[in-house]
Structure formats: structure tokens, C-alpha cells
């Protein structure tokens, strides 16, 4: 399924089911406070945008949610599991893709998929079926045995995303997934995000592209380690009396 515009995307966010809860999250690096008392919830099935200028602390927060970094203090639950005690359970339920697209350059497309399927313990029968579907969706069937290194950046990103949700996680974390590509390629990437969301996967995405912010169900805007605003793009625009998210962002981050 490929969607031609975000408007076709059927919202199936369940507003009363929290999949991520964050309370008073603090992360300090020495005397520098990267995350200053963050409190927010993410609901199941929504596309949650995490915005902020470089160095605002968004990647730090995302890394804590993924278990890559430990918080200094605060309570965090991801997919219903405690981040301090149940990291192993969290890991099985999340997918992750970083700005450095997360595939092995010297492996082929098929080998990358086999690796991830193996790491997440997916049976080979299921893997074969899902891989065929994935390659068909991305129109990469003929490139199956090509090395990742030879693919265009846009393809790599789409493939990396598809691999990140290959094990059907509850949440997928995307850390500036579309860096370095043109708006049209970004748009195509977002089609995949909508598809994942309509299949019930919660999407947590950091970005500094404001056109992408418009595509999110809700966005939080961070500045200097604090969340300065958190709402739907429509309500934020209304509140700040702005034409688009760009203006909202400029007013908040100055």
C-alpha cells in the first residue's frame, strides 16, 4: 500500500493508551543538562514528532528511550516496560533507525534482511514471506543481491526503515531519518511511515525539517533541553498565530 498524500492516512491513534510515558526525565552530562525535566506521553499508533534545533536535546532523549543511554533521573516506561529494569523486554518491542542509515554497506539487501531477521529471532519461513513482500513494496526485487553500498541514499533510507520494522515492533524510533535527501524523496519516505502507523506501529521521529513536522499527529518542540510546546500541528499554528510550522518553530526557538 502506498499513499499519495497524508490526507488519505487513516488515523487510528488510541488516545487513551499510552505506549511511552516519561515523567521528570533528567539527563546530565557533567554540569550540562541535556534533558531538563521532560514529561510527556506518546499514544499507541500515533506519529510523534520530536523537534528542536541541533543540540536541543532531542537525540539524547530518543537514545534514552531506546536504552542506548541511561537517564540521570526520572521515570520512563516504553511499551509498558520500565527503562531501568526491563530493558531486555523493551528491546524486543522497539525498532530503531539512526541518521546514519543503519544497514551494512558490504552486505546485500537480502543479507541485511537475513541478519536482522536472525537477530530478532524471526523464523526463516516468516522471513522469506516478509522479505518478498518488502522487496515488492519497495520495488527492489531485482536489486535483492546488490550491495547496499551501491544504492542511492533515498533507497537506503527506505530500506533501513523497512528493516527497522521488519520484526513488527510496537514502536519505531527514527533519529533524523531523512537527512540529506530532497523533499520529494522525503515525501516518499513518509509514505512508508504512514503505512507503518496505519498498521498500528507507533512512530517516534526526531527531525529538524519543518515540512516533516506538518506530517506528524503531534509534535513536541524542544529548546535548550526543555519541551517548550507539545500539541497537534494545527493547534500549535493556531496558538502561535502562524501560517506554518516553520513560523511556530522560529517563535519558540528564536
Amino acid at each position: 500500500m502506498t499513499l499519495s498524500s497524508p490526507d488519505e492516512y487513516q488515523k487510528n491513534t488510541i488516545m487513551n493508551e499510552q505506549i511511552i510515558t516519561v515523567q521528570n526525565l533528567v539527563k546530565k552530562f557533567g554540569s550540562f543538562t541535556a534533558n531538563d525535566n521532560l514529561t510527556f506521553d506518546v499514544y499507541r499508533g500515533e506519529i510523534f514528532g520530536f523537534l528542536g534545533a541541533n543540540g536541543a536535546g532531542k537525540t539524547t532523549a530518543l537514545r534514552i528511550l531506546c536504552g542506548l543511554s541511561a537517564p540521570t533521573s526520572g521515570e520512563v516506561k516504553v511499551a509498558g516496560f520500565d527503562i531501568y529494569r526491563e530493558t531486555e523486554k523493551i528491546k524486543k518491542n522497539i525498532g530503531y533507525m539512526s541518521q546514519k542509515f543503519s544497514l551494512y554497506e558490504d552486505l546485500t539487501i537480502a543479507e541485511n534482511i537475513q541478519l536482522y531477521a536472525g537477530i530478532y529471532g524471526i523464523s526463516s519461513k516468516k522471513r522469506k514471506a516478509k522479505m518478498a513482500e518488502l522487496l515488492k513494496n519497495l520495488e527492489l526485487e531485482s536489486a535483492k543481491n546488490k550491495l547496499i553500498a551501491g544504492l542511492p541514499l533515498g533507497w537506503k533510507q527506505k530500506l533501513a526503515f523497512s528493516v527497522a520494522i521488519f520484526h513488527e515492533p510496537k514502536i519505531v524510533f527514527l533519529d533524523e531519518p531523512t537527512g540529506g535527501v530532497d523533499p520529494i524523496t522525503r515525501r516518499r519516505f513518509w509514505d512508508l511511515i504512514y503505512e507503518a502507523a496505519s498498521n498500528g506501529i507507533t512512530v517516534f521521529v526526531t527531525t529538524h525539517y519543518m515540512d516533516e513536522a506538518e506530517y506528524c499527529d503531534r509534535v513536541s518542540i524542544m529548546d535548550a533541553g526543555k519541551i517548550e510546546a507539545l500539541d497537534t500541528p494545527a493547534k500549535l499554528k493556531e496558538k502561535y498565530n502562524a501560517k506554518n510550522m516553520d513560523e511556530v518553530f522560529i517563535q519558540i526557538a528564536r
Partner: peptide, 9 residues
């Protein structure tokens, strides 16, 4: 890619 391994089970 190390991060991917660290995030994985």
C-alpha cells in the same frame, strides 16, 4: 551500525 546492535535484543 553499533547502535543498531545495541538497540537489538
Amino acid at each position: 551500525t553499533m547502535e543498531i546492535l545495541l538497540v537489538s535484543p
